[in-house]
Amino acid sequence: MPNQALLVQSLVDLADNLVDDFDVVDVLSLLSDRCVYALDVTAAGVMLAAPSGTLEVIASSSDTMRTLEMFQLQSDEGPCLEAYRTGRQVVNIDLAAVGSRWPTFAAHATADGFGSAHSFPLRLRRRTLGALNLLRIEPGALDEADIAAAQALADIATIAIVQHQIVIDAQTLNSQLSAALNTRIVIEQAKGKIAQATDTDMDRAFRRLRHHARNHNQRLGDLAARIAQGAIDPGSLDHLPASG
């Protein structure tokens, strides 16, 4: 079972880092340390994908952990890589029994005295940003509550990373949001103009707008904007096929 008091403190410490301008490395180092304190594990580490897609070791609770994570990257094998690539948890791995699956990693980890490995994706929708890697001296399965708690910590780390990036891109994203809103709005305005000019309903007006855009290989939003602005006569669009 996770130590509840320590787990809550971990979550609060992590959330605290969200408030101020923070360094992602600091947050993930905190996450690694807290995993060891709050969960029933011996060592923890975090790998994060660089913009190029290659994984990098960002944080580790110990030098041994850092070395083992480096081995995973160098030999291109191990639970952390698999969690990152599949976006799924790779947990309850008995290191004594996976010599054929991950020969280099399993050999080094067992030599360092570890019995089991557990990896959690840092995931936002379809995007996986990296993985949290946990190692225990004991072989065998993690407690269900520990698994849930570890994924919760991984999820908060993910939000921390994503929200950190959001601040950097806030103005660009806000412009894109406004542009998307405006596109939706001008489509409605164009529908209204077409409906009035051709004496039809909104549904049929929209189909005619879409039909014309496709016929002329134009983006729907661009065509709608030109109609709304008055650059194109709303009554002049291509007619729908007879069946339409």
Binding site: E188, Q189, K191, G192, K193, A195, A197
Partner: peptide, 10 residues
């Protein structure tokens, strides 16, 4: 916005 499009033509 649909109504605005119609009024604009009217």
């Amino acid at each position: 916005h649909q109504a605005a499009g119609m009024v604009s033509v009217q």
